[in-house]
Design a protein around this nucleic acid. Structure first.
Length: 550
DNA sequence: TCGACTCCCACGTTTGAAGGGA
DNA sequence: ATCCCTTCAAACGTGGGAGTCG
């Protein structure tokens, strides 16, 4: 069915111009320490196949699959070029694509197992930066993190064969600085450093979402970290973008761009842009790599993806200091940070989850509604309560996010989660009632991870404007991307419901069934973050009890 | 005053509809 | 009627410049 979707984004990647590195070059970046993939301290039992338990074959296969998955960064050399100069990504109110775009080559998947591939972008540290003297310098403490969103690959869920067949491109991912962004783009703060992360979530319809076999892994490529800007600061980056981005071809040529400007301004002489002037003024310093001050030491953390039944999935958020996310000072070997966790049954609840049904029932299709709310950045997630929403299969949701208030709080696990207030996005019918329930957060225990059960969560309606939410509440949302043209057509009220001071109930186009399935899968999860010892990668086991398959 | 940001511009690329021919 | 190919216009993505804002 995936073949019927026409040109997928991953297929587009093959057509995309630009230097494409061979498989061999990307293989290095995968460099997942395979021998250690079994996760230090993680026994076979922890992986969900304890001897004597009669673990089914599917479970074993799933575990092997998730552990064997390798991800290679496409155009790694290009990323390195940018990284060495200090990658900057433009963020605009309307949303701007990343360049280089995030493309990966995935191998080691079970060809028949379905996976959801998604990206989130988390702060690399808690600093705000400024470009001074041709280098990035810390300019203070970071502003409150934007509501985290996830970008789910539009092909999701798809079989491993599909993902492995070709490059997986996230080139349509867009970044914005609009806090009220109605398009589902990933919201970032300007002049902050971020680290994209790739998550691969197993979504095998044989056992349905949330089954005991569900697992996921996280891949981080340090060279993809960047500083978000509203206009390029480093002329080196500008030139790299112009040279490598086909959309910027109009600016190519050493003098053409200036000459073009001159023509535009009806001048007979080239106009030296500010960036070029700045570049020339500091050209003598260019040989020296930008040196970012030592980054703030934060704690490596885990994000707990929790299912409705309380089981956890945990995404490891590497501490910048521990992981080479701070990449502007030295050209480090881009080791891959790999986090692999699984869930297994550990409780006795029996749930008939709508998400499972919808996933199994909905056909495959491609939609652009692939933005999800991602977990809040590292330490801000520590106090995040978990919740789920009462969403129907066709309802796109955006949850409120955790806010700055929770950042840096240490005794997170002992604090009750704050109340949650939600509004919702809906494409079919608006919710008439909200159900809010808090969920106890289970303290993270140092690796080897283990999953703990929590209270069952009802599904919550979702909110469209995070700003209306008390910070520190819900911290995971699913967002169906609405095309900008659609928003334009629907007018500003639909685009910015919060500006009208309304509960932000917006009409949205019906999400694709595929994405709905993915949404539901992710709806049922929530994120929280707890402290974790410094680890570059690890795997764990999630406990989900009494999932009913089929 | 200054830096960050927004808006608009022109250019190039991408996309998909429309049309024609086999 | 179907398929394939070409053409072309609209949409989209891009960095730069001017203006705005705090």
């Amino acid at each position: 069915m995936l073949q019927d979707k026409g040109l997928s984004e991953s297929e587009e990647a093959f057509r995309a111009p630009g230097p494409a590195l061979g498989e061999a070059s990307t293989t290095n970046s995968t460099s997942v320490p395979e021998p250690t993939l079994a996760a230090p301290g993680l026994s076979g039992a922890a992986l969900g196949s304890p001897p004597g338990q009669g673990a089914d074959v599917a479970a074993t296969a799933a575990e092997q699959t998730i552990e064997n998955i390798k991800v290679g960064l496409h155009e790694k050399e290009l990323w390195k070029k940018f990284h060495e100069a200090g990658t900057e990504m433009i963020i605009t109110k309307a949303g701007r694509r990343m360049f280089p775009s995030y493309k990966v080559k995935v191998t080691g998947m079970n060809p028949k197992t379905k996976y959801i591939l998604l990206i989130d972008i988390v702060p690399a540290d808690d600093h705000r930066y400024k470009f001074c003297d041709n280098k990035w310098m810390v300019a203070g403490k970071a502003e409150p993190a934007m509501p985290g969103r996830l970008y789910v690959h539009p092909d999701s869920p798809a079989t491993g064969a599909h993902w492995m067949r070709q490059l997986v491109s996230f080139q349509k991912l867009k970044l914005t600085n609009n806090h009220l962004d109605p398009f589902g783009h990933i919201i970032l703060n300007s002049m902050h450093k971020y680290q994209p992360r790739l998550h691969i979530v197993k979504a095998d319809e044989n056992n349905a979402f949330g089954s005991k076999n569900t697992a996921f892994c996280t891949h981080v490529f340090p060279e993809t970290s960047f500083i978000s800007v509203t206009s390029y600061q480093n002329h080196k980056i500008t030139q790299l973008k112009i040279e490598n981005n086909p959309f910027a071809k109009g600016f190519r040529g050493s003098d053409d761009s200036d000459l073009r400007v001159a023509r535009l301004q009806s001048k007979e002489y080239p106009v030296i842009s500010k960036s070029i002037m700045r570049q020339r003024l500091v050209s003598s310093q260019l040989s020296a790599k930008p040196d970012v001050s030592p980054l703030h030491s934060a704690h490596q953390a885990l994000q707990h993806y929790q299912y409705e039944n309380g089981a956890h999935m945990q995404f490891a958020a590497a501490e910048p200091q521990d992981l080479p996310l701070n990449t502007f000072s030295t050209q480090r070997d881009s080791s891959l940070f790999y986090h692999c966790l699984k869930r297994r049954a550990d409780s006795a609840r029996h749930l008939d989850l709508p998400c499972k049904r919808s996933y199994l029932e909905t056909p495959s299709s491609v939609g652009d509604d692939h933005y999800f709310r991602s977990p809040p950045p590292y330490d801000q997630q520590m106090l995040s309560p978990s919740y789920c929403s009462e969403v129907t299969p066709r309802e796109a949701c955006m949850y409120s996010s955790s806010g700055p208030e929770i950042a840096g709080v240490s005794a997170v696990d002992d604090l009750p989660p704050p109340p949650l207030s939600c509004n919702m996005w809906t494409s079919v019918s608006p919710y008439t009632s909200y159900s809010v329930q808090t969920m106890e957060t289970v303290p993270y225990q140092p690796f080897p991870t283990h999953f703990t059960t929590t209270t069952m969560m009802p599904r919550l309606p979702t909110i469209s404007a995070q700003s209306a939410q008390p910070p520190g509440n819900a911290h995971f949302s699913v967002y169906n991307q609405l095309s900008q043209s659609q928003v334009r057509e629907r007018g500003p009220s639909a685009s910015f419901p919060r500006e009208r001071g309304l509960p932000a109930v917006c009409e949205r186009k019906p999400p694709s069934p595929h994405l709905n399935a993915a949404n539901e899968f992710l709806y049922s999860q929530s994120f929280s973050l707890t402290r974790e010892s410094s680890l570059q990668y690890h795997s764990g086991v999630g406990a989900v009890e009494n999932w009913t398959d089929g």
